[in-house]
Amino acid sequence: MNQPTHIRDEPQLYAAVRRLDHIMTRITDIFAFAGMTALIGAIAVVVADIVWRRIGGQSFIGAVDLTQFCVMAAASWAIPHAFSTGAHVTVDLFGKRIFRRFFYIIDALIPLTGAALMAFLFYLSWGRAMEQLAYGDVSQNLAIPMILFWVFLLSGLALSTLVCFVKFLKFVFTGETI
């Protein structure tokens, strides 16, 4: 996938877009690693709860809240990573050989649509998150502020919007997908 089909006359712009794309990939990578570290944290919490219960005969009331907290981070920060590496499932019925012009337009529209969608979801979620912040809602057992759960989702959606938009720029300037 690394053959630019038509390099434009603006090598500087071309390089800048590529660098931007590279930076976005790095950022999503860092977030994905942070999220997966949280997932390992969730594993530790659940295992500790089991051991504590079987051996100590006690229960660890906050285990569910903590697990949800970690998984929320893992899932939210994995989404931009999946956009950035093209891991999202697509159906490739026609292959790339036929309807080239048509699919060129589609290929440009897909990341742009993705960016618009993620931005819209961010806008919707933002409103709801602010409502929860205003009420000071907290999780059922450990009373973790719900806004923290929302921060994971909001940052994941914002990052996904940026990733998709940079993919769109990259496609327009370099003709490269993913």
């Binding site: 994905a32 997966m36 939210s76 994995a78 990573h81 999946a82 590496t85 891991a87 999202h88």
Partner: peptide, 17 residues
């Protein structure tokens, strides 16, 4: 391994959304 897990997790959760 972490990249692979993150890629599949992100893909599945976005489909869920």
């Amino acid at each position: 391994g972490i990249r692979e897990t993150a890629g599949m997790t992100g893909m599945i959760f976005l489909i869920l959304i």
